[in-house]
Design a protein around this nucleic acid. Structure first.
Lengths: 347, 347
DNA sequence: GACGCCGCTGTAAACGATTCCGCCAACGAC
DNA sequence: GTCGTTGGCGGAATCGTTTACAGCGGCGTC
């Protein structure tokens, strides 16, 4: 079932069939409808390989993410995919599992597939990967890669403002000893989050003991590890900010296991606002990061050609603080130098 | 950069280059290595469109899932994808959001892409979808579709045994009044789970009030709804089995909100064993369903040709009960005819 | 020495679409 | 009546591979 069969059936040439397929306006409407009838009758489906061989376009975007098990990414994928398919574009998928090796392999695969664009919604981009993308001239959009040159599009997230809000929230609650559980040090997004946190601390002249600065892995295991450390410290922080929600949730879980109370013994702030954050006990105070917005910008960065490229490059996504129940006023024994206080006025 | 350039550079014909590309054994090894050197030198990447136009194979599988936000599916996707890419196959992805319409649209897209196989790891398959797949003659594997004819492969899950284990577990704990929160009635997997539960109840001559048979949506919202119902009943069940973990987690969350204790006031069993189940408080007793196994069987059902087709069709996946902390011996006020009891011996 | 066979390689015809040209009829202007 | 223009359509080249077929040395066999 090829285009020639349709052409014969409709009594026209293949060129004309192709034109109605691609909705060229140079076909008389009576001819067009006759062709369309034949297409319908014969159940003709154009061959994608032939199409993209000739036209050079595949109508496929590659989407690469770090860790599909982190609920942050399924949201992202869903939005990206539904946006893409509504524009007639399919998405092939690559999961790196935070491995640079798998990232490079994934990019190679996508390049071999001649995808029309690649959304690299991941953090562990190595120089080798960037070089490879650079020489293949395929449109690429990154998520929050500060070191990326202007030849690539980049969606930036305002970590500084986000963590500033988080720290300020804790400060208002009376916390002065605030710890941080970072992500893996080879992840640029994790590094930037950590720096943004430290900036927020500095701006408020809050103390930072290196002991309070823990390293996680952006998974629950990192949080579990951190919890064990924190609750065995001589001088523990009274509040902890985590580099992402999964870390905070792992911490929460271990706190439970150790018989500690959140937020009674420790206030906890996450980052991402996974749906999980509402579900855990206590519901997690966290920074909301809109997946829909990221997916939308990523898609249009690839799709709109270069139309509003510069506009979308300059824009920045703002996280917003969502206060739930994992943070509370500093109280009880933690407020060392002050008398015990029942509660602050009314609330 | 095409194959002709490489051929000239290596001083051979395009046919020979193609042969080394496809590792035909009919090329002298000295020639082959010369060609390989040229490929390397010129950074040649074969054009996938041309390849699949000529060969009729795309080396792409379609993977369609119901709801990527349900953590069950990311696990599935990850395993499927890593298996596929390790065999040189890419996967393009479709999310149906439980919508038959989107399912049909997704299948159409995949068919237009000429994928070499489709894994339909979803439940809401309509007859229209089946017909479409049938006439396209593309290899397809379904997940647990009892009505599917023998012309399709099908991975079956032993719900009867699974729910039997769950009910037996509750019965051993002393529960006699056991409710069920089902999934959407138009989802065949949900219907079959419900039936399996009822079978388990019957086999033990346990009572079933229709009031205890609730309907959810396989998301947390369904569980929330169910919790509100259950805790306002005159004669509530003492234990509830849920059609999946998301439902159980929603129920758990609302129980918390209503000030009820799980498992004190109600024992709870889920289905799937999401990683979430370990994280919620209390950790959820549930039926473990191996995503790796499903993904593996799905992949090989498509990939191994017809080699061990019949073997894989006949095999069945067994869920296994994982006992955590959301189920407990019936106790306190729920044991109507018995005196209140402080706790069971030691613990 | 003729012949057949075998291992390796090249030639060229597909695969199924898109699209550049060029053609033709119709029509208006002069 | 001639000519130019324009809208609509067809012919055929082209995209980059794969692969059937054929060719061509060299070698063993009789």
């Amino acid at each position: 079932m090829d285009i020639l069969t349709v052409a014969r059936h409709a009594g026209v040439s293949t060129a004309t069939v192709s034109r109605v397929l691609n909705s060229s306006n140079k076909v008389k409407s009576s001819t067009a409808s006759r062709v369309r009838a034949s297409i319908e009758k014969l159940q003709y489906i154009p061959n994608t390989s032939a199409r993209s061989l000739r036209s050079g376009k595949t109508n496929v975007y590659g989407l690469v993410v770090s860790d599909i098990r982190n609920p942050f990414f399924p949201d992202l994928i869903e939005h990206f995919e539904s946006l893409a398919t509504s524009h007639g574009i399919d998405v092939t998928f690559a999961n790196t599992g935070y491995s640079e090796e798998r990232l490079l392999a994934g990019i190679t695969r996508l390049l071999e597939r001649n995808v029309d664009g690649i959304a690299l919604l991941t953090s562990e981009v190595s120089q080798a990967a960037i070089d490879k993308l650079h020489e293949s001239a395929v449109p690429v959009v990154f998520l929050n890669q500060p070191t990326i040159g202007a030849e690539f599009k980049n969606i930036t997230i305002d970590y500084v403002q986000g963590f500033s809000d988080a720290v300020e929230h804790l400060r208002m609650l009376g916390h002065r000893k605030i710890g941080f559980v970072a992500g893996p040090p080879n992840l640029s997004s994790a590094v930037r989050r950590r720096e943004a946190f430290l900036t927020a601390l500095n701006a408020r002249s809050l103390p930072m003991k290196s002991e309070w600065l823990l390293e996680g892995d952006h998974k629950t295991t990192g949080g579990q590890f951190a919890a064990e450390h924190i609750f065995s410290m001589q001088d523990p922080p009274t509040a902890v900010v985590c580099s992402n929600d999964m870390t905070a949730i792992g911490l929460l879980q271990t706190a439970h296991r150790l018989g500690r109370n959140i937020p009674g013994d420790l206030s906890l702030v996450g980052f991402d606002d996974l749906f999980l954050s509402e579900i855990v006990q206590p519901p997690l105070t966290t920074l909301h990061l809109s997946r829909r917005e990221i997916a939308t910008r990523a898609f249009y960065a690839l799709h709109s050609g270069n139309a509003n490229a510069s506009a979308s490059r300059s824009s920045v996504i703002q996280p917003s603080l969502v206060v739930r129940a994992s943070t509370a006023s500093i109280a009880r024994s933690d407020r060392e130098s002050q008398p015990r206080q029942r509660r602050s006025s009314r609330r």
